[in-house]
Design a binder for these strands. Structure first.
Length: 879
RNA sequence: GGGAGUUUAGCUCAGCUGGUUCAGAGCAUCUGCCUUACAAGCAGAGGGUCACUGGUUCGAACCCAGUAACUCCCA
């Protein structure tokens, strides 16, 4: 026999992953079994594997492997999304390195480069997931921009346009001046930033002299040229005299009115608010209300345009500094204060978001939100943990229309075609568009050359919300076997950050196109943070490289490590030490295997271990039910912990110690066979968490011959068996006895090798004769006997109400012994007093449930019995 | 500013309908062991005013109110 001293993961991982692939164990085709389906949250093609993916995909793999082992037809569909903004930024950067500007390219040329980039880098994450052991059906790998999925996106656009749910409109959008595109609210990251609050004086018109001013406070002095009004609160007594007046914008001397609105907070700044409808969302709404003109002074790249009159061509931030100087010089700057406020940054480019009015495509949400909310409120879809239902409801009840256009090329181009007269038609192809165009403008004789397709593409989420349907070709062929079989999927595992803009919209699309929710459970994972609670990020450099972790601790170790620290829905404070614990666990399993592997069987021996075997069998069945219940509630870390303790404590530390033969002695056939059967069952329940080591051991000859397809990955989980609770309880008592004996050794510094005697004065019904063998073996007891008398010259202890004695040669210290007994007596007396006062309380007796009272009575009886024995012992010691 | 959540051992977390000897687990710590499966280990032990203050109740980690700290979402 030549087994390494520790488990070496690397070899096993490579061997078994390719074995699984080769035998198509991940593959799923519809059949008569019950399906269990997960669609992966498609990582974007620009990404590399980070800790969030590790967590997310470990969970999915555990679920899918367990389903497979429960006899379901398990299908985990992988894929990626095209991430229009992020990918386009990467491609632009790549081109720049090659000395090519995006402006120098035609759209098809640019897209050719983008596809090249995608082919090269777009599969990295999926390949990395294989290292983790992800058992995805790789033949089903999809990409949101492949032909069929793109067609689904375009059809969806047309579908909703025809329904009147997609419209074109001018709206204030979050403009990313660097990416030169609109981004959604969800892609804006708000951060608290130190700014300056500029107090600027505006001349009041028509008071004869130039001496009267009003002062406004703003963080954006560069936008004063776009002001349309000054607004004050009508109740503000300080400014009654300004009602109906006009003021002049400093530097450019344009006249604007003073308007009245209770929107203005009197105690913020000066109580005078500059209203700049083109550059602030709230101002825009205020402007609409008061019919103010919209003056947009910014170009798409964030520089000032000619409407600003001054500082034309300057970047907004340069202009801010310069205008402060100009205002100061001309005496318009009253003062500058430090000020903190929230500023939006683009998630993709980190540019400061500019509120900007622009023509965009929108998708109406309120109509779709209603049924999508109901699925969750009625429980057809369960959010785990439940607390997210609140958040979900809040969002769905206050939903805003979805800006779906992006000023980019990488993505599905919006199927809108503009006629020379400015009208547009919505059509899938140029030809159809031409027909529609000619129909709408009879006799115009348009050709395809006269039509111009909208330059913009659709938001990536407009692809991914179709994901659970489109991966099964549910748009192209709505009645195909796959979609009918796999949809709705079962569980979705994703991050709470995208509950709204992905999960909610998938529910909407599912309802719209299939009339059914796309999944039943949504398991929301937390954010992986470092142990200091900081988000893992590239800039902080506090994120471990997942592949290095796998290298260091093995994939199984890392999977266990991730799950150990991941309560559902809560952020997890990741630390490498969890992976270390996972690795140690793998090693423990390995060594238990080594022990069993080393045994020789003697067919002539009778089985002395019936009790131990029956006990572990019960314990195993008990653990199975615990694990199942944890899984049902998606308490994966607890399911893992229950498994961990079963294996490490119950199996290794107790069971194996109970049955293990003396060194170099053989074992009986029955114990040997049973133990191997136990071990095989243990491998099964471990497999979803630790697929590699379990598969590796599964194939050892210890378990007999295996056919090529007899693999742990497709083994069926053990069935529930009998649980002998009486035996489980008894063994708990036996364990206490053994622990107490070990304690005596420790306290008296007696070597574990030295055998001791043990006598019991049994006052209870526990059948100690059954457990003599276990007690003598684990306690290293030479003789275990019964006595009816208390033994002097012995160390004593009590378990439950039974008394135990370990005779010792050296005399015991009566003072210490008395102290010990007295301490226990004091505790019990106090305890008994509390119980008695409960039982003596009329209101307790009247109100408490009968079973509670019964319990109290039992407590009383037990305590009294124990106290009696204690007192006898104290008397015997003459304390 | 509005809403939600969290606070239990040094760390990460359980604690289900208020009721067992209920204050728990894993890790970490400490003590003793290289006892031939495993030192990535074995045996044992010590750690907590359940954030704070009140209230309800026969009984509160759990229910209610207030306070504090932290986190997230929205403005």
């Amino acid at each position: 026999m030549n087994i390494s001293k520790t488990y070496l993961p690397k070899e096993a991982e490579e061997k078994w992953y390719s074995y699984w692939l080769k035998h198509d164990f991940f593959k799923s085709v519809p059949d008569e079994r019950e399906p269990y389906t997960i669609v992966i949250p498609p990582p974007n093609v620009t990404g590399v594997l980070h800790m969030g993916h590790m967590l997310n995909n470990t969970i999915q793999d555990v679920l899918i492997r367990r389903a497979r082992m429960k006899g379901k037809n398990a299908c985990w569909v992988p894929g990626t999304d095209h991430a229009s903004i992020a990918t386009e930024a990467k491609v632009v950067a790549m081109l720049k390195e090659r000395g090519i500007g995006k402006k120098d390219l035609t759209r098809p040329e640019f897209l050719a480069y983008a596809w090249e980039w995608k082919e090269k880098y777009g599969g990295i994450i999926l390949d990395q997931l294989k290292k983790l052991g992800a058992s995805c059906d790789w033949d089903r790998t999809r990409f949101t921009m492949e032909d069929d999925l793109s067609e689904a996106v375009i059809d969806t656009f047309i579908h909703f346009y025809k329904k009147g749910l997609i419209y074109r409109g001018v709206r204030m959008v979050n403009w990313d001046p660097q990416g030169k595109t609109a981004v959604s609210d969800e892609e804006v990251i708000r951060k608290e930033v130190n700014q300056k609050l500029y107090y600027i004086k505006y001349n009041v018109v028509g008071e004869g002299s130039n001496t009267e001013f009003l002062t406004i406070a703003t963080t954006r002095p560069e936008t004063i040229m776009a002001d349309a009004a000054i607004c004050i609160n009508p109740n503000d007594e300080r400014y009654f005299h300004l009602h109906g007046k006009k003021v002049l914008i400093p530097l450019i001397n344009r006249e604007i009115p003073v308007i009245l609105d209770e929107y203005v907070t009197m105690d913020f700044g000066t109580g005078c608010l500059k209203v700049t409808p083109a550059h602030d969302l709230n101002d825009y709404e205020l402007g609409q209300k008061h019919n103010l003109p919209v003056i947009d002074i910014l170009n798409d790249d964030g520089t000032l345009n000619e409407k600003a009159q001054i500082l034309v061509g300057e970047d907004r931030f340069a202009a801010r500094k310069k205008i402060a100087v100009l205002l100061e010089a001309d005496g318009y700057l009253d003062k500058v204060e430090d000020y903190k406020s929230q500023i939006g940054f683009s998630e993709r480019t980190d540019a400061v978001i500019e509120p900007k009015l622009s023509m965009q495509w929108f998708c109406k949400m309120d109509e779709m939100a209603k049924p999508a909310l109901d699925y969750v409120l009625k429980g057809d879809i369960k959010l785990i943990p439940e607390k997210f239902t609140n958040t979900y409801r809040h969002w769905m009840e206050n939903v805003k229309d979805w800006c779906i256009s992006r000023q980019l090329w990488w993505g599905q181009q919006i199927p809108a075609w503009y006629l020379p007269n400015g009208q547009f038609v919505i059509a899938k192809t140029a030809e159809e568009a031409l027909e529609l165009a000619n129909a709408s403008t009879p006799g115009s004789g348009l050709t395809t050359l006269d039509l111009k397709q909208d330059e913009d593409v659709l938001d990536t989420w407009f692809s991914s919300w179709l994901w659970p349907i489109s991966v099964f070709d549910g748009f192209k062929d709505p009645n195909n076997a796959d979609i009918n079989y796999y949809y709705p999927t079962n569980d979705l595992v994703t991050a709470p950050e995208i509950l709204f803009f992905w999960v909610a919209r998938m529910i909407m699309a599912g309802h719209e196109f299939r009339g059914e929710a796309p999944f039943k459970n949504v398991y929301l994972t937390g954010i992986v943070r470092d142990k200091l609670g900081r988000k893992m990020s590239k800039s902080l450099g506090n994120s471990p490289d997942p592949l290095e972790l796998i290298e260091k601790f093995g994939a199984d170790g890392v999977r266990v490590g991730m799950l150990l620290c991941s309560p559902a829905g809560n952020d997890l404070m990741f630390d490498e030490s969890y992976c270390e614990q996972g690795r140690n666990f793998a090693n423990k399993i390995w060594n238990a295997f080594k022990l069993i592997k080393g045994w020789e069987v003697d067919e002539n021996l009778v089985n002395p271990n019936e009790v131990a075997i029956e006990w572990f069998d019960s314990r195993f069945n008990q653990a199975l039910t615990e694990i199942e219940s944890n899984f049902e509630q998606f308490r994966l870390s607890e399911a893992l912990m229950a498994t961990y303790k079963l294996v490490w404590d119950d199996f290794c530390a107790w069971y194996l110690e109970m049955i293990k033969p003396v060194y170099q002695h053989p074992i009986d056939r029955e114990t040997y066979d049973k133990t191997i059967a136990f071990f095989e069952n243990i491998l099964k329940i471990l497999h979803p968490f630790m697929p590699f080591i379990t598969e590796e051991l599964w194939h050892d000859e210890l378990f007999g011959d295996r056919s090529e397809l007899d693999c742990c990955i497709v083994a069926q989980l053990p069935k529930y068996g009998q649980i002998n609770t009486r035996l489980l309880d008894d063994i708990e008592i036996v364990k206490q006895i053994i622990t107490q004996v070990r304690n005596i050794r420790n306290a008296k510094q007696i070597s574990p090798k030295e055998k001791l005697d043990l006598s019991v004065k049994a006052n209870s019904e526990v059948a100690y004769n059954l457990y003599g063998l276990i007690i003598t073996k684990l306690g290293n007891i030479s003789t275990f006997g019964f006595t009816t008398d208390k033994l002097a010259q012995a160390a004593g202890f009590m378990v439950s109400t039974d008394e135990f004695y370990v005779p010792l040669e050296e005399s015991i210290d009566p003072v210490a012994e008395c102290e010990k007994l007295n301490k226990e007596k004091d505790y019990l007396t106090g305890f008994l007093k509390a119980v008695n006062s409960k039982l003596g309380n009329e209101r307790f007796m009247a109100n408490a449930k009968p079973e509670i009272i019964e319990v109290e009575l039992k407590k009383k009886a037990d305590a009294e019995a124990k106290l009696k024995i204690l007192e006898e012992n104290l008397a015997a010691l003459a304390c």
